[in-house]
């Protein structure tokens, strides 16, 4: 991984990068396959996930300030949901990051989820790979707060932060089979509201119980949002510690495999969705026949 200082020395052509990201976000499955490449020496990736309105964007704004102060050049990719009916979207994440948006070392890109329903956006793997080819040390990725489909962001990031709020208390028991097992760092945000301490204690108990593959990382539970605390500095430090831990301990081949598998699955999912959309009558038969038709259409696709 290149040092922050050397990466920052490269000048960023924001116009070219902005356009490149549009091209990639708009790419068809065939185009994506044609342009696909591995990205060596990529930026460190920090995923921020959690239910809608938990305060992810606000927290990213504050966190990015700290990461910039650490000396890193930072890109933020923030995803908001597209309407499945009109395809329209309000990309409202960046407005919460206003306090830092004037820093020229920071690049924020808002994306609509479009066809993806895994909390990320179409072609997100390629979007991240494109950023890897630019002078960023770190990419912070904000998911759509879907709450259940965290496998995607887990696959694509190095450090995954789950942001919960005091009202999440009731959800913790229900969630423990899903995303609660995946995060590296837990945040109880809006700690200025009542109930935060209780949720944090419950989380700590659940986290203790859970069996982890990487047993030597104990996921911290951090409360943020209380005025007058070092909340974001604590989070910043925990992220750095985890990124270093990951770099020390993980097998890069495994990471590549997991990311490629996610990439492949998302392209296949989109291909199937395309096929079904183009052939609505294709479902007017038995499920077995419909399945066979889709497989045939997939085979017939020009790559």
């Amino acid at each position: 991984m290149a040092a922050a200082s050397s990466k920052q020395a490269e000048r960023l052509d924001r116009r070219a990068l902005g356009r490149a990201l549009s091209r990639i976000a708009n790419a068809s499955v065939a185009d994506a396959l044609a342009g696909m490449r591995d990205s060596p020496n990529g930026a460190r990736r920090i995923g921020i996930t959690g239910p809608p309105g938990a305060g992810k964007s606000t927290l990213i704004g504050r966190l990015a300030r700290q990461r910039l102060d650490n000396g890193a050049a930072v890109a933020v990719v923030a995803i908001d949901p597209s309407s499945p009916h009109t395809h329209g979207a309000i990309l409202g994440d960046r407005i919460r990051m206003d306090a830092i948006a004037d820093d020229p070392r920071l690049f924020i890109r808002s994306l609509a989820s479009r066809g993806a329903n895994d909390g990320l956006a179409d072609n997100i793997a390629d979007v991240l790979a494109t950023l890897d080819g630019h002078p960023f040390d770190e990419v912070i990725l904000e998911t759509v707060g879907v709450g259940q489909a965290e496998y995607a962001v887990r696959s694509l990031t190095d450090t995954l932060v789950l942001v919960l709020v005091p009202e999440s208390g009731d959800q913790i028991q229900a969630m423990k089979a899903g995303m609660l097992e995946m995060a590296d760092i837990y945040v109880v945000n809006k700690a200025d509201l009542p109930g935060a301490q209780k949720v944090a204690s419950e989380l700590k108990a659940v986290v203790k119980l859970r069996q982890r593959l990487a047993a030597d990382w104990e996921p911290p539970v951090i409360m943020t949002g209380s005025p007058g605390t070092n909340d974001v500095a604590t989070l910043n430090e925990a992220i750095s510690r985890h990124l270093a831990f990951v770099q020390r301990t993980r097998n890069e081949d495994d990471v590549r495999r997991v990311r490629r598998e996610y990439h492949l699955k998302s392209l296949l999912t989109r291909s199937v969705a395309d096929i079904l959309a183009k052939d609505p009558k294709g479902m007017d038969c038995s499920l077995r026949e419909a399945f066979a038709r889709v497989v045939e259409s997939l085979k017939a696709r020009q790559l």
Binding site: S82, H87, G88, I90, L91, G92, R94, I95, D98, S110
Partner: peptide, 16 residues
Amino acid sequence: IALALRDAGAEVIYTG
């Protein structure tokens, strides 16, 4: 205006 454009299918960013 932002909401109207969204309802027409656009992806809208608002600066504040």
